[in-house]
Simulated scan of single mutants.
Amino acid sequence: MSRAVVFDEVGGPDVLRLVDEPAGTPGPGEVRVRLEAFAVNRLDELTRSGASPMPVKLPHARLGCEGTGVIDALGEGVEGYEVGDAVVLTAVPDMTANGTYADHTVLPATRIIERPERLSPVGAAALWVAYSTAYGALVEKAGMRPGDRVLITAASGTVGLAALQIANQIGATPIAVTRHAAKRDGLLAAGAAAVVATDTEDIVEATRSHTGGAGADIILDSVMGPGLAELAKAAKRFSGTLVTVGWLDPRPAPYPSVPITTHRYMSFEHALDTAAVRRIAAFLFAGLRSGALSPTVDRVFPMEDIVDAHRYLEQGQQGLGKIVVTTGQAG
């Protein structure tokens, strides 16, 4: 038997419970992964609480769209992998049916990549969603180049921290945005060339000050909401690009009226494209080897404490980095 975190109704963290169930058998083209660690993402909270537009298959729904572990069973026709290989999951076809909050998950072999040797299970669990989202939005979508000034909102979040490192790896100049001036030193240490704290500064004025009056070449926004139109004014007129990747503020977001290019980026746009996944993995692994990229982990919980992990996320106690949960299945 295998353990899995499930919920039978939407609601607060207390709806989550740990149950025993069969580990599952991989079909043709599939692998079964014995999970060692998984990350807790905002999407998980939205799904559990009923706030996500994604349909939830109740009862006995699961959570988890990323994780890492070791292959312990191969389906017919799988090539390029062997039992015992350490892997990172790049996409989960239906997380409410077979998500990663578990000891095991079964998924297509096309939805995993080899885990870099230098990454521990905890570090690997914090890698894919944040870094592939930041890379996809900045490089694939916005075409970030060396020398670009990149304004990054919610910079202390997981995508924001990944974006700081990726911008530096490319040779761009990352400018971090945070609501709290108390996070300034931490963001500078994390790689920001400058920090705009909106509790004490006007975001448009501060951005123009940090860019010699020109404005940001690229804005990466994870917030949306009513402030989006004002944020867009911080971009370079006519040639600036705004890419939105999240919706931390669920209120309506007015469309920017300034003359810039806008994109909406969703991570599954590239997560299901095998060629794009190869490009993303090659870039991230090069950054890991050079030391330019290093996943940031805020806190680690055992799977038995999954309710506490969700409470921690929901209460906004999170510092810099990812919340990771370990299954105790390493080795």
Score class of each variant (00 low, 15 high):
Ser239Phe: 13
Phe283Tyr: 08
Ala155Thr: 08
Ala162Ser: 11
Asp217Tyr: 09
Gly246Leu: 15
Pro250His: 04
Gly227Met: 15
Lys233Phe: 03
Thr261Glu: 14
Ala181Asp: 13
Thr198Ile: 06
Leu231Asn: 09
Ile203Asn: 02
Ala192Thr: 05
Arg208Asp: 08
Ala197Asp: 05
Glu230Ala: 12
Gly171Lys: 14
Arg237Phe: 02
Leu220Pro: 14
Thr200Ile: 07
Asp221Val: 13
Ala276Lys: 15
Asp199Glu: 07
Ala276Leu: 08
Thr178Ile: 03
Glu201Trp: 03
Gly227Val: 11
Asp202Arg: 03
Ile166Trp: 01
Asp202Trp: 13
His180Met: 01
His210Ile: 08
Pro226Ser: 05
Ala282Arg: 14
Pro174Phe: 11
Ala271Glu: 12
Ala182Val: 13
Ala214Tyr: 12
Met266Leu: 15
Pro252Thr: 02
Ile219Asp: 11
Thr244Glu: 06
Pro259Ala: 13
Ala286Ile: 01
Asn168Arg: 15
Arg208Cys: 13
Gly215Gln: 10
Arg251Ile: 00
Gly186Ala: 14
Val150Pro: 11
Val177Asn: 08
Ala271Arg: 07
Asp199His: 04
Ala162Asp: 04
Leu242Asp: 06
Gly157His: 05
Ala192Phe: 08
Pro226Glu: 04
Leu248Asp: 03
Ala192Asn: 04
Tyr265Met: 11
Leu161Lys: 07
Gly291Ser: 02
Gly246Pro: 05
Gly191Cys: 08
Arg264Cys: 04
Ala190Leu: 03
Glu230Ile: 07
Gly191Ser: 02
Ala235Trp: 10
Leu188Thr: 06
Gly246Trp: 12
Gly171Val: 14
Pro256Val: 03
Ala276Tyr: 02
Asp217Ala: 14
Leu188Pro: 02
Ala193Asp: 06
Val177Gly: 12
Thr211Asp: 11
Thr207Gly: 08
Asp202Glu: 07
Phe285Ser: 01
Gly225Tyr: 01
Leu288His: 01
Gly227Phe: 10
Tyr255Asp: 00
Asp202Asn: 12
Gly287Ala: 01
Gly225Trp: 00
Thr178Glu: 07
Lys183Ile: 06
Leu220Lys: 13
Ile218Lys: 12
Tyr265Asn: 10
Thr211Met: 09
Leu231His: 05
Val223Leu: 10
His180Lys: 15
Gly147Ala: 06
Phe268Trp: 10
Arg149Gln: 12
Arg184Cys: 10
Asp185Cys: 08
Ala206Arg: 15
Ala281Met: 00
Arg184Ala: 15
Ala253Pro: 09
Phe283His: 09
Arg279Gly: 05
Glu205Ser: 15
Val245Cys: 08
Arg179Asn: 10
Ala190Thr: 02
Asp199Leu: 12
Ser156His: 03
Asp185Ala: 15
Pro174Tyr: 10
Thr241Cys: 06
Ala155Ile: 02
Leu187Asn: 01
